[in-house]
Structure formats: structure tokens, C-alpha cells
Design a protein around this nucleic acid. Structure first.
Lengths: 339, 339
DNA sequence: CTGTTAGCGCTTTCAG
DNA sequence: CTGAAAGCGCTAACAG
């Protein structure tokens, strides 16, 4: 109840507040003897420095913000784990903000972060974000930003992603090699670079194998699950329905699964599905699920590492570095073993 | 770059700092006219109050800590989502701390939180936690605590959980009704009340159906996945191996799945598995997975609601309330539809 | 209705 | 090596 602060320690030791403060930060200008005395009393009373006082004084919070669309999504959870692990090593704190894929919420969160509450921001954009004024403003305030996964190409700063093009190319090619000729692409958002890059990989694979790109096989999904479901259902109900589906995100693959069940289409007999997905356990449990698994944890670690490196050097502006981590195409045979 | 603070606003408006401050907090003692002027300039300059200054002054941080063993776990992710949604409504910030199921880390995190960085702590205990001195200390410092899921029975405060006993009873009974007679229990930790309650439900169901409880069918799992795997493998390699498995947590069910595959045991032919699990999508994808699905999001919301109610009233000590939310037994037929 | 002032707990000159 | 004092940005008496 009674506060343990520098004043109290100082009084009890007959020292000045500044001496105690310096002793605790192991300053060279304090005698060993004094340091020992201070340290021991601090431990005894379990002194914990008030972080707000020192943040106010130093204009540094030792805190970063992680802004993600949602957290109940294996990719983001794992990435946050990665971020958290580096943060703990570096003695930083992690504030989590969820945008729920909503632009307005994202903007208001980012705007709030101009307050100085955090020293840097790691962000994965909402699928609705096209206007980036709020991010530019934040940067102008001197806050370093690192993008991960869902990056913004037009802002010069570090971006950590999966090799979206390459892995999409391989995934699509895999479907083609399995005999698919009419492959649909479930597109997450026209605003997000991941959606675009993944689509490019898909198109490139079709091109390589002389399959004509059919615009009508692309489903432009939105934020409404019901609507997405309906669109996928329409697609799979067509006379000339696709025999393969490449989903740019897990959520859309799940929708496709649902629809196949409703329409009594067998997987992978009638329709082969492949998707970006980090549901390791799910794919473990279902042999017919072939996934592109992103190195989510490492993406988090990498993004955080870049950020802390900048913060250590008091760098406000992070260089326009692009870090691309490889994803793995996890194909399973009918017994569920990886191949 | 240049800071927008009260001083700056005051100077530009020819008002005193305190007047500006009051105007911004919509104090009754400020004229509408002044308020308007202040507000409009604040908006124009995009003034964001320094949270550290006001926290220091008010001894309130408008921030809570959420301490969980891990985050790449659907239950915790969903619960954090729930917490986050209430926090955002109430204007609170959420700091996430991960213990990695490690007691030492948990203790050091909790100790750090005595600093006043947060106004309250929501926690789900690490499976290694048996000593609770750190939690008692925290409480003595005047910080309200709310437990969720993995609660500590011996501390008087609010606890939000699933009806562990009841749902375990039903799950076990379900296995018995499916014809299982030798049902194993995969036990998470002897320290955690959830493990114990779930075991009690299991035992009670056996008792009701006149099946003798066989201690040798209980696997006491630890923190090491390899070891757990080995123990489950030993269990399923026995001459008199179980024909049913009830896993108290998802991770152990996954281990059992792996082992069955290695030993070429069919599920649910040779062995029926049932588990606490929030991997909705996984169970969607695999028809043979029967789960007890906890209302994770609601547990998070509920826990946060209790916390904010206390904080609103400046209550340091939360009453020993127990909130129990129902879980649902999700049984699927061979087509994967819920029944 | 508005201004002056004291301080939250800490760091950091500047003096000794 | 140690102490005194100023001040980070904000709030809350207390005066007027």
C-alpha cells in the first residue's frame, strides 16, 4: 500500500534521491559501498521504479505497439509470439491493438499512438486500408514503423514478408501438376499487397503452363463472411465449376470447405484446395489439406529485431529494407504424412 | 517533431495551461466559447495528451495486463480477443505478457507489475505454478486480479472458468456410450485446478457407469512435448491399451493423434479421442474429432468486464466471485456435420 | 469562469 | 563521490 519510491529509499539510507537513483542505475560515479547498501535495501523493500515517471522524463517508454487485424488467427498469434519473445529479451513491453479489419479503427488507433505511448509500431494492415495518411502522420511524429506480412509498399521503411509471389506460383503449379485445369483464386483484398502478389504468382503459373487466365474464376472477397460464402458457393455451383482452388488466406479456404460439404463435392476428388494457412494442427488432422505455411514466428521475430535495432540507435527513420522469408508448401499424402 | 502539448496550446490561445486542460476534459467550469476555441485548435494541431504525464499524476494508467502461458493457442487468442474488445470499449490499453508455461517467468512478470504500470491484472496461470507468493504480493500492492480459465483457488478474487467438471463428465460419458470401457485420461498438470476438475468429472462418469478407475490409464503430462509424446506412446503400445482417450487439453490430444498414426491405430475405430479444444477450424476439417469447445471469447469478455467494473469503482479488492460458463460438446458424424 | 501553484517520481545538469 | 534543484506534461487544489 505505502509506496516504495526513491524518496523512501533515500530517507531510509540517509542519502539524497539522486544518489539512490544513480546507484540503482549502476552509475560509475557512485562508490561500491553505497551501491551495495542501496541495492540491498531496494531488494528488501522490493522497489520497482515507476515506469511512467521515467518515461515522462526520458521521453522513452520501452514499449512498442503491435497492431493487427485480429488475433484469433494462427498467423498473427504466432507472429505476436515471435515479437513477444524478442521484446522480452530486450526488456520491452508490448501493447496489442486489434483493428478487426476495420479502417476506421486502425486509423484511430494509429492516431492515438502519436501520444508518445510507444516508441515504435509494428503493424499488419487491415484489409480495408487504402488511405495511408494516418501512417504518414505517425512517421512524421518521429515514430519508427515496421510492417509485417500485410505491408504498405508506398511507405519507405522496413517490411517483413513471406515470399508471396514465389510460394503462390508453386502452389498453383502444384495444383496444375495434380491435373487441375480450371483453378480458381480466392482473393482477399484489392488493397493488400499480399493479395496482389499472391495473385501474380497464380497468374504466372497459369501462364507458364499455357492455361488461360479466366477472370471469372477470381473471387474478390470482402470483410463479410456470409457474402464471401455466397460468392464461393456461386462459383462452385456453376456448370463449369473449378476443379482446383487456391485461397490467398485460410479463412477463404475454410469457406470453400464448407461450400464443398454443402454441395456434396468431394475433396480432393472433385475439387482440390490449397491455401495459405498456419493452422498446423488443422493440417495435421486433415490429410487432404495442402497448405503454404508461413514462418509466422520468425516473421514476428525478424520484424521486432529490426525495430529494436533502430530503437537502440535512436533511429526514427528505418531504412527501406525488405526482408523476405521463405514459406513451405506442405503437401500430405493420404496417410497425412508430410512429403 | 515539435511537441504539441498543453503549454503550446495555451500559448497559442492566450490562455493558461489549466484552462486548456479543463476545457479538454469538458469541465463544467469552462465557458462554451473557450471550450470551442480550445477544441478546435487541439484538433487542428492533432493534440494527443501525453499518457505518461497523466498516469504519473493520477496514479492510474488506463492499462491492464493480460498474462497467459502462450498465445499461439486458440483458447488464449480468443480470450484475448474478448478482453481486447471490452478494453477498447472502455478506453483501456492491453499489455500482453507470455509466461511460456514457466514459473520463473511468471513470477518475474508479476513482480514487475507491482511498478504501477497497470491498473489490474488478468491472468491464466502457468502449469508449473504452485507457489503463489508473487500473486499475493501483487494483491497487497493494491492491484486487482482476475483469474480466467487457469485459476488459483486459494486467492479470494473473481475467477472465470468453463464448467470443467460438468463438461468432462459429459465427455467421458459420451465415450462410454460409444462403447469404450478402458478410457485413458491425459492430465495436464497437478498444479492446475482445471486439470483436477476435469479429472474429477472423468472419474465421476466412470463411477456412474460402474467402470473401475485405473490409475495406470492416467498420463501426467509435463511441459516437455517429447516426453509427453513418449508417455502417450507407451500407453497406446500396451497389450491392454485404452480404447478411448479423454485429453484435458488440445496439445495432448494432438500428441495422441500423432501416436495413433505412428502405431497405425485407426481413429475412431481402434481408439476414440475426445478433447478440450478450441481449434474450431481443425474440428471442422476432421470429422472424427469430437471436442469440448470452451466459450473462450466470452470468458475473456467476462473476465475483463469484472475487472473494469472494479476499476470503475476504484476497488482494489475484487470479491470472491466465481463465474462459470458452459462449454459445448461438439460431436460430429462422419460427414463432419455437427450433431 | 480563469489563473497560479504545487507536485506525481524520476533523471540529469550543475555545484560542491 | 554526493547533493540540490530543475523540469518532463499533466492535474487539482486554491485563489481570485
Amino acid at each position: 500500500m505505502d509506496p516504495v519510491n526513491l524518496k523512501k529509499l533515500a530517507k531510509q539510507l540517509n542519502l539524497s534521491i539522486s544518489t539512490v537513483s544513480r546507484a540503482l542505475r549502476d552509475s560509475y560515479e557512485i562508490s561500491q559501498e553505497t551501491k551495495d547498501k542501496v541495492l540491498s535495501l531496494a531488494n528488501e523493500l522490493n522497489y520497482q521504479p515507476n515506469p511512467y515517471a521515467s518515461s515522462l522524463r526520458k521521453h522513452k517508454s520501452k514499449t512498442i505497439a503491435v497492431v493487427v487485424p485480429e488475433i484469433a488467427n494462427n498467423f498473427f498469434s504466432l507472429a505476436i509470439n515471435g515479437i513477444g519473445s524478442v521484446a522480452q529479451e530486450k526488456g520491452y513491453h508490448v501493447l496489442i491493438y486489434l483493428t478487426h479489419e476495420d479502417f476506421t479503427q486502425e486509423a484511430s488507433i494509429i492516431r492515438h499512438l502519436q501520444s508518445g505511448r510507444v516508441d515504435g509500431v509494428l503493424i499488419s494492415l487491415s484489409s480495408e486500408t487504402s488511405d495511408i495518411a494516418h501512417l504518414l502522420e505517425l512517421r512524421q511524429k518521429g515514430l519508427p514503423i515496421v510492417f509485417f506480412d500485410r505491408v504498405c509498399e508506398s511507405i519507405e521503411t522496413a517490411k517483413v514478408t513471406t515470399d508471396d509471389f514465389e510460394s503462390s506460383f508453386k502452389a498453383t503449379e502444384h495444383l496444375i501438376e495434380q491435373g487441375c485445369t480450371r483453378i480458381a483464386y480466392l482473393h482477399i483484398s484489392k488493397n493488400l499487397s499480399i493479395g496482389i502478389k499472391r495473385m501474380q504468382g497464380y497468374q504466372e503459373a497459369l501462364y507458364k503452363h499455357n492455361i488461360k487466365f479466366d477472370e471469372s474464376l477470381v473471387v474478390h472477397a470482402g470483410n463479410d463472411n456470409e457474402e464471401n460464402h455466397a460468392m464461393v458457393k456461386a462459383l462452385l455451383s456453376r456448370e463449369d465449376r473449378p476443379d482446383g482452388i487456391f485461397a490467398s488466406v485460410e479463412k477463404l479456404a475454410i469457406a470453400a470447405y464448407h461450400v464443398c460439404r454443402e454441395l456434396s463435392l468431394s475433396i480432393p476428388g472433385d475439387v482440390k484446395i490449397i491455401s495459405f494457412s498456419n493452422l498446423e494442427t488443422a493440417s495435421l488432422l486433415n490429410p487432404s489439406l495442402t497448405t503454404i505455411t508461413q514462418p509466422a514466428f520468425d516473421i514476428g521475430r525478424e520484424a521486432a529485431t529490426v525495430m529494436f535495432r533502430a530503437l537502440d540507435k535512436n533511429k526514427i527513420h528505418i531504412d527501406n529494407e525488405r526482408i523476405v522469408l521463405g514459406a513451405s508448401l506442405v503437401v500430405r499424402d493420404s496417410t497425412g504424412n508430410n512429403t
